[in-house]
Design a protein around this nucleic acid. Sequence first.
DNA 1: CCCTCATGTAAGCAACTCCTTATTTAATAA
DNA 2: TTATTAAATAAGGAGTTGCTTACATGAGGG
Lengths: 113, 113
Amino acid sequence: MRGATDELSLVFQALADPTRRAIISRLRGGPTTVGELAEPFAMSRPAISQHLKVLERAGLIERTADAQWRRCTLRTEPLDEASAWVDRHRDEWNERFDLLDERLRELKGQTDA
Amino acid sequence: MRGATDELSLVFQALADPTRRAIISRLRGGPTTVGELAEPFAMSRPAISQHLKVLERAGLIERTADAQWRRCTLRTEPLDEASAWVDRHRDEWNERFDLLDERLRELKGQTDA
DNA sequence: CCCTCATGTAAGCAACTCCTTATTTAATAA
DNA sequence: TTATTAAATAAGGAGTTGCTTACATGAGGG
């Protein structure tokens, strides 16, 4: 992705990585420090920090300072947007689809005949 | 993304681009040729071809040959998966969240007191 | 057969991603 | 103060993305 700074793109892009999805899943259990988050992954702390930055840029997490720890908490709004987009395109197209496909078949039949 | 060949990552990655989302929206109206798809975009045909390849790799479209045209049709299954993941993480965390947050506040209160 | 139209593929380029190790910042504890 | 701990930042490298232009493929029409 070369530009794509719109919100929806940032959210989908953030979700397009197994490590980041695992972080989100992990955070579902409640706010967690960066060190705790990094522990189960075979990856350096800076790598996790960078993943968190991507999630933060997408609005999916918030980092608040707590002494020398950063407490990461999830935010649900961006997922609502993503979910809305997906569902909108999922539900409607099947019906429309069959209808238009049939109509096209009709038209093609007329032309060919 | 350096590896990330799992299905879910491919789907989210495919959705993480405005052009590709626009293509999907457009395809909701029914099967469409590559040329018709490319027309509204300020972008070369090969660029669209490559976007379609990304969508195809994610299983979001199918291309079938129809004379010298390629008719692109949408597939809904991958979106079902994506939707399932998002919804799973959306619905549950709010409740859990408030609970654990409260519990943490309690613990912290005890420690501080 | 040649010519055109619709599309795909190849090669190249700048920007970005995802990791690394080394360094820096900031808070706690002695 | 100095040392330790938690985390962010810097710099760098291999690989990927998203575009471009040029060329290849393949069907239909003269």
